[in-house]
């Protein structure tokens, strides 16, 4: 199956109101070219699952500034004042989740687990409405899996089979998001032939990746 496509070919998968996972941590390892395309197509009412909302001019923050986001499920919005402003004005819904819980909710969804037990959030607002479970005398919160319709990732080097290698700190949420969406698209900084990434160095196996789009570099 040919996985390398043009950005334009993604149009058919984009729908108003869809749920997206977008990789990156403060815009490091975020697929900026794919975000360009979401802005160009002006897809609306998006629900975005991401570590943070980046900056107003960089990363996921650009979608917030462009009023394309209905809800964001994230661990941090502090570096993008526009997210906070829209939240206070009732224009965007923000669900804050501890970072380790967010990543594990994604992992659970991608790993076929019905949830997991974490001590994080006990005795805080995070525990509200959640089931508590006692294991060996210690109390945990039951946290549930979270999935998306589409995951947008950024890879430093991607081979034509979809195998991904990430450079340095760009890895962050990208590998786990590859496992938890119905459709997975990776923006490649560099596309190489199969075999050019040593199989021992592949971080995300190509079977998770549906499409590869060359990034703007």
């Amino acid at each position: 199956m040919e996985k390398i496509i043009s950005k334009e070919a993604l149009s058919e998968f984009l729908k108003d109101g869809m749920t997206l996972m977008i990789g990156g941590f403060l815009a490091n390892g975020t697929p900026e070219s794919l975000i360009d395309f979401l802005i160009e197509k002006n897809v609306k009412d998006l629900v975005i699952i991401c570590n943070d909302t980046g900056f107003p001019d960089k990363g996921i923050g650009r979608l917030v500034v462009n009023r394309q986001v209905k809800k964001v499920i994230t661990s941090h919005i502090g570096t993008n004042s526009e997210t906070g402003r829209q939240m206070n004005a009732g224009e965007i819904e923000v669900q804050l989740i501890p970072q380790g819980t967010l990543v594990e909710k994604i992992r659970a969804a991608g790993s076929g687990l019905g949830g997991f037990l974490t001590p994080t959030g006990i005795g805080t607002m995070v525990e509200e409405g959640k089931e508590k479970i006692l294991v060996d005398g210690k109390t945990y919160l039951l946290e549930l899996p979270i999935k998306a319709d589409l995951a947008l990732l950024k890879g430093s080097k991607v081979d034509e089979k979809g195998n991904i290698w990430y450079n340095k700190s760009t890895r962050n949420f990208n590998p786990v998001m590859a496992t938890a969406a119905d459709l997975v698209v990776v923006e490649a900084e560099e596309i190489v032939k199969a075999g050019e990434i040593d199989p021992s160095n592949v971080v995300t196996p190509g079977i998770f990746v549906d499409y590869i789009v060359k990034g703007r570099g």
Partner: peptide, 14 residues
């Protein structure tokens, strides 16, 4: 001020 907890809740517990 609602920046979010980021990784702080996990760090403090873990």
């Amino acid at each position: 001020l609602v920046p979010g907890m980021g990784g702080a809740m996990d760090l403090v517990v873990g």
